[in-house]
Amino acid sequence: MNKVTTSTLIIFVLIAGWVFYLTNIKKDDSLTVRYYSISELAKESNDIRKIKVGGYIKPNSINVSEEDQLEVSFFVYQNSDSVKVTYYGIRPDLFKDDAEVVVSGSYANNLISATELQTKCASRYEGDLKNIEKI
């Protein structure tokens, strides 16, 4: 085998390896995270290292710590199921009762310790015209 063929071969093996690796990223939770629904999670008794969950903030469940304004706990609900979430950090602008949120973090003992908290904002600029008069 001459040098060119050997190099080509090495390159192909490397690429094949890389592609094989990419098809298996699902198992590597440092790269990916699975999305759970609240009802799915409510049935889940095992701990999960990394999750992402979407739902709505249960009214009157937001509890901000007196000692540290950045410490908060609340429940996220979907239909009749709900899960408790704790979070440390600044809350997004639209964080309030019934706001739609996406929470990422870990799940243990029926509690989500969130590392990331996002509110979904309703797009204000698409859709209805505001200053109109009916005729």
Partner: peptide, 13 residues
């Protein structure tokens, strides 16, 4: 299954 691929995937790879 909905699997999210975060910034960590893109950065690490």
């Amino acid at each position: 299954n909905k699997i999210y691929v975060g910034a960590s995937y893109f950065n690490q790879l």
